[in-house]
Simulated scan of single mutants.
Amino acid sequence: MKNISMKNVVMGSVLAIAAVTSLSANATPVCSGTVAGNGASFSAGTNFVKVAFTPKCSANVFLDGEETSPTVFRVGSASLKGKTKFGGSSVGGSVGNMGACTGAGGVCSGTDSAAAMTAASS
Rank of each mutant, 00 (worst) to 15 (best):
K56G: 04
F42N: 02
V35Y: 03
G39R: 05
V61L: 15
C57S: 11
G37V: 09
T34K: 10
N60G: 03
V61P: 01
G33N: 01
V49P: 02
A52M: 10
A40Y: 08
T34Y: 10
N38E: 10
S43C: 12
T54Q: 08
A52V: 06
S58Y: 12
S41K: 12
S32A: 13
K50Y: 04
V51I: 08
N38T: 11
T54W: 00
G37P: 05
P55E: 10
V61N: 02
T46D: 14
S32N: 09
G33Q: 02
K50L: 10
K50S: 14
K56D: 13
S41T: 09
F48D: 02
A36D: 05
K56V: 08
V51Y: 15
K50T: 15
A52P: 15
A59H: 06
G37S: 14
A59I: 04
A59Q: 05
S41E: 10
F62G: 02
T34S: 11
V35G: 00
A52E: 09
S43H: 06
S43K: 12
G33E: 07
F53D: 15
K56F: 11
G45C: 07
A52L: 07
N38G: 13
S32R: 03
A44H: 11
F62C: 10
A36H: 09
G45F: 06
C57G: 00
A40D: 04
A36V: 06
A36C: 05
V51F: 02
V35M: 00
T34Q: 07
G45H: 06
G37A: 10
K50G: 11
G39T: 02
G33I: 03
A52C: 09
F42W: 04
A59S: 14
V35K: 01
F53T: 14
N47F: 12
A59E: 12
G45S: 15
A59T: 13
G37C: 04
F42P: 01
G33P: 00
S41I: 02
A40I: 00
T54D: 15
T46W: 02
N47P: 02
G37T: 04
V35W: 00
A40F: 08
N47E: 08
T46Q: 12
A59R: 07
A44I: 12
F62Q: 00
S32H: 03
N47D: 15
F48K: 08
F53G: 05
N60I: 03
V49G: 07
G33S: 12
G33L: 07
F53S: 14
T54P: 06
F42K: 02
A44L: 07
S58H: 11
V61W: 01
G39K: 07
N60A: 12
A40R: 04
A52W: 10
V35C: 00
K50N: 11
V35S: 01
G33Y: 04
P55Y: 13
